[in-house]
């Protein structure tokens, strides 16, 4: 079973990220489970969203803080203590929304059980380039999924796009689909730590 944690800020759409990926995985016959932190959340404050994907029925429920992958939607979160709750398993991945070349330095702040592969994608820039900005917030939650599925090798880009189309409505759909493809192509492997 694959267990991923999305770390973002309240209102940034981390839960939607996990739900859309759960839906994309389901389209390929996988079982999935997506949920937000059990509790009340405040806009702008650090938040967690969780995702489980497996080939067989998922029996486990509830939150976990030891994960196969950590996806950080806002690099500013490395300045807060919350990220210290997470441990990435040996052989796991860390994907950060940041400029190319920055990933390893940031990722060393995350607790790890062993070697971890670090990736970066500038989802903020991609969002801005594609007019994905709402109330001053770049909408990075869909583009970052493009980067994530490239790293994982599954689910496919077409399943993800289908899931995005089902979840979102209005003129943001097309921009998000384009942004997802761009992030898919632009994700950068920063190396192992």
């Amino acid at each position: 079973m694959l267990e991923l944690i999305f770390h973002g800020r309240g209102g940034q759409g981390a839960v939607t990220s996990s739900e859309v990926l759960a839906s994309a995985a389901s389209k390929e016959g996988y079982q999935s489970q997506a949920f937000s932190f059990f509790g009340a959340e405040r806009r702008g404050a650090p938040v967690f969203a969780f995702l489980r994907i497996d080939e067989k029925k998922i029996l486990k429920h509830g939150m976990f803080f030891k994960a196969d992958g950590l996806i950080v939607l806002d690099k500013g979160l490395f300045n807060f203590p919350d990220i210290g709750k997470v441990t990435v398993k040996k052989g796991g991945i860390i994907l950060i929304n940041t400029e190319k070349g920055n990933g390893k330095t940031l990722a060393t702040k995350v607790k790890r059980e062993g070697t971890t592969k670090v990736f970066s994608v500038n989802a903020t820039k991609i969002a801005i380039d594609h007019d994905l900005v709402l109330a001053g917030w770049p909408l990075v939650n869909m583009p970052i999924l493009g980067a994530l599925i490239k790293i994982m090798g599954k689910p496919s880009l077409s399943s993800l796009q289908e899931a995005v189309k089902e979840k979102l409505t209005g003129k943001m759909v097309e921009s998000n689909l384009e942004a997802v493809v761009r992030a898919f192509n632009e994700v950068y492997y920063e190396g192992e730590i």
Binding site: Q31, Q33, F35, S36, F38, H61, G62
Partner: peptide, 10 residues
């Protein structure tokens, strides 16, 4: 609540 109510699954 949360465990099922707020958790998405197929």
């Amino acid at each position: 609540g949360f465990i099922l109510g707020g958790t998405a699954m197929p």
